[in-house]
Design a binder for these strands. Sequence first.
DNA 1: CCCCTCTCCTGATCGC
DNA 2: TGCGATCAGGAGAGGG
Length: 287
Amino acid sequence: MPELPEVESVRRGLATHLLGRRITAVQTYGERVIRYAPHGLEPVVGGTVTAIGRRGKFLWFDFGRQALVAHLGMSGQFRLNCEELPHVRAHITFDDGTLLDFVDQRTFGYLAPDDYRADGEEKVPCRVCHIARDLLDPQCELPFLVQKTKAKRTQIKRVLLDQTVVSGIGNIYADEALFAAGIHPASFACDLTELQLTVLYCEAKAVLCRALEAGGTSFDALYVHVNGESGYFDRELRAYGRTGLPCLRCGAIMQRTVVAGRSSVFCPQCQVFNESEGTFGAGCGKI
DNA sequence: CCCCTCTCCTGATCGC
DNA sequence: TGCGATCAGGAGAGGG
């Protein structure tokens, strides 16, 4: 599933091949991929790619005054000059003959031409304006994020998955960050100390960085790079997908629970539920 | 405003 | 063998 490291890997791949290229033709298959695009992809024909932007899990092709926003959803892939594949939802042709396919099995992804709105010094597509900065954004300020989180009267895992608080984290890296910080996924955000939250976000940032270095997590083959290759971070996952296996820190059997309707894997010994402020899990601090 | 649940979708897997 | 049920999950819509 594409989260920040996977989307950033895709962004880099697209930037390598498409900067300066002009779109000469577009073709879409089915209505779902353009469900937020009232005029389909036609508005971007003729646009020249001046940059590929990203915030959290959203990315966009920058044409100067206009953008093409892309969200990969659960299974979206961009593939450059690929062989014929199932589930192709859009096909984009560039002036140098490069062919870009948007492939998406589960159809949660979409493409949408969009206008920009100013966000301080930056410009961000309107569809992305409500999305918070992600942990790799230089302008993401940790103390502000900790305060915002501390004010939430809901479970910490919900907050990590809430893209309007901090973006880019999905189910895999939420579980990894909570494990690293020794925090139970169902602990209430407001019950955690500022120190715990600071550790949590530092660990989250660290795991995102390490996953990016590995080219992302190709846990179930729904994510690959623009050339079809896998990422390797699945080999380094310490929580996600490890239900019933021994904790890599203490040996206790990893358990599964459901938070926010999402499967959540945690160590019952290292990640203690916070009844109230000040209770650390046994693993916290061991980084 | 805040928080929660439901919904969209396909393919893999499981039990009968 | 085959078939129905279940699960996976990002984020937008809508409800309380």
